[in-house]
Amino acid sequence: MYEFDWSSIPGALPFLWDGMKISLEITLTAVVIGIVWGTLLAMMRLSSLKPLALFAAGYVNLFRAVPLVMVLLWFFLIVPKFIEQLFGLPPGTDLRLTSAMIGFALFESAYYSEIIRAGIQSVPKGQMAACSALGMTYGQAMRLVILPQAFRNMVPLLLTQAIILFQDTSLVYVSALADFFGAAYKVGDRDGRLVELLLFAGAVYFVICFAASTVVKRLQKKFHPA
């Protein structure tokens, strides 16, 4: 019978917290950039300008057709070299966090753009006609009327995607970056208590994501009382 020994956890908490900060940092950057870039992609995809629409469709389909781990790995291999050259940094500078952020942001943008596209399309066409009839430009109509309504419809979906994204940040283990999962793994490995640490990490992920989902459900009820 396996005997659990949780004693290595209390001492490792500061290290684990540092890992959690990295996970949260990646999540936050990817959500913010993902929504901004995703909105632009969605607008391009719905645009009547063919090259823009094609570019956005290609981008979204490419990223949605490739496993996230693979995208992350590419970015770990390519982005550091690129940034080193661009900013003249000494070779070997630790850019794992930066490349993780960029990788996640670009990957998530593809998913966010699909959510946002559906959100824009959920706003009745007459709204755009009304804006045009009042003399608003396309940009004004989008900014003042269409996107605010679209985002209001999308808030639950965007948050759900953020929760999935938070779970997916654990995939940065491929670069040995000490995010929360990575940190837990390292501590467990060091102390020979891998099972305990992974159970603990799992419990923490569960509590955070379950709590967040509950909040989303409440929001959903508030926005769409059915």
Binding site: G126, A129, A130, L134, G135, V145, Q149, R152
Partner: peptide, 16 residues
């Protein structure tokens, strides 16, 4: 268009 008023079948007020 800013000088030509238009009223639609489905009103199209801005709900937000």
């Amino acid at each position: 268009r800013s000088r030509v008023g238009m009223v639609f079948q489905h009103f199209e007020l801005f709900p937000h």
